[in-house]
């Protein structure tokens, strides 16, 4: 399946969805003008992957610095699709990265973890690597 690479902008995150390399990652800030427009291709891509019978391990990394409310809804939508992968017995893991001093992102991760029924890891980021 054709990979998706979206460069990060000031208000949209960097997106990497590559089945060949096994990289599934959303990283950066997410407060697009139109969240639906931004996240629609990502959701469609994941649904197509699910429909195509992808059966390798799927590790999805969320590496947000910030996201707005409408992005939060679409993140949940992505997680729901990942749940469907899990339901199809495809090993799925969500890794939610956060800076240790960023309580908001950490708490959001906890909220998502409590909603979805897939393995969900909260991973603190090393601040020094981002200096």
């Amino acid at each position: 399946m054709k990979a998706i690479y979206i460069q990060a902008t000031q208000d949209t995150p960097q997106v990497t969805l590559d089945t060949q390399k096994g990289i599934f990652e959303i990283k950066g800030n997410s407060y697009p003008e139109n969240s639906a427009q931004f996240y629609n291709p990502i959701i469609e891509w994941l649904q197509e992957l699910l429909a195509n019978g992808y059966n390798n391990k799927l590790v999805f990394d969320f590496n947000f610095d910030y996201f707005n409310t409408s992005s939060a809804k679409f993140i949940l939508e992505i997680l729901r699709i990942l749940e469907e992968f899990q339901e199809k017995n495809i090993e799925t893991l969500v890794r939610w990265h956060y800076f240790e001093d960023d309580i908001d992102i950490f708490e959001s991760g906890e909220d998502y973890k409590s909603i979805v029924s897939i393995p969900f890891e909260l991973i603190p980021r090393d601040d020094t690597l981002y200096l």
Binding site: T69, A72, K73, R80, D104, S108, D111, I115
Partner: peptide, 20 residues
């Protein structure tokens, strides 16, 4: 149930943003 979870999540995220 799903919608309720979503509402809870969005309220929580919204509250955090408001606080910020």
């Amino acid at each position: 149930k799903k919608l309720l979870q979503e509402v809870k999540l969005l309220t929580s995220v919204g509250d955090r943003l408001q606080k910020k």
